[in-house]
């Protein structure tokens, strides 16, 4: 077993499958994504096949296997935002960044994700970049925002 993940795994009792999701969550919190070598380490520790871990990890929205971009865009998919025009924001982001949700641009700068309601429906449509919220987005403001990050 690779020694890198031993400390983390030791916090949980071995061979208990119900700890799989908490372990994956802690890994993701630490690294921002789930590193591939960790999967085999978890498999050995919890005594389940690695394929089962992939099956679980790919099922839930939260887990990722690649690091996010330098600027991680999360666009609110809540119905409140949709009624106020988040579809325009989404299609514009698609066009500007030329990536699908879950992907990362070739230069590693931007990544994209659609997320459920961010909870600021009064300022819809909203998106968040690296956790900072931007309210009342319009395609024009979005272009300015992306340009601002590009020129940094």
């Amino acid at each position: 077993m690779s020694t890198e993940f031993v400390d983390l795994l030791k916090k949980y009792p071995a061979g208990r499958r119900e700890n799989l999701i908490p372990i994956l969550q802690e890994l993701q919190d630490q690294h921002g994504y789930i590193p591939e070598p960790a999967v085999s380490a978890i498999a050995e520790y919890l005594e389940i096949p690695a394929v089962k871990i992939y099956s679980v990890a790919t099922f839930y929205n939260e887990f990722r296997f690649n690091a996010g971009g330098k600027y991680h865009f999360q666009v609110c998919q809540g119905i409140g935002c949709q009624v106020d025009g988040s579809e325009r924001i989404r299609s514009e982001l698609h066009r500007l960044l030329e990536i699908e949700p879950g992907e990362i641009t070739a230069d590693g700068w931007f990544s994209l994700e659609w997320v459920p309601c961010l909870g600021v429906c009064q300022e819809a449509p909203v998106l968040s970049v690296n956790g900072e919220l931007y309210a009342k987005m319009t395609p024009v403001r979005l272009k300015e925002l992306v340009d601002k990050f590009r020129n940094r």
Binding site: R17, E18, F59, Y60
Partner: peptide, 21 residues
Amino acid sequence: PGAFVCGEETALISSLEGKRG
């Protein structure tokens, strides 16, 4: 870890058991 279907009680239980929801 985020899945709409986990609002269903049996899916929620699967998720707590460390399985797909």
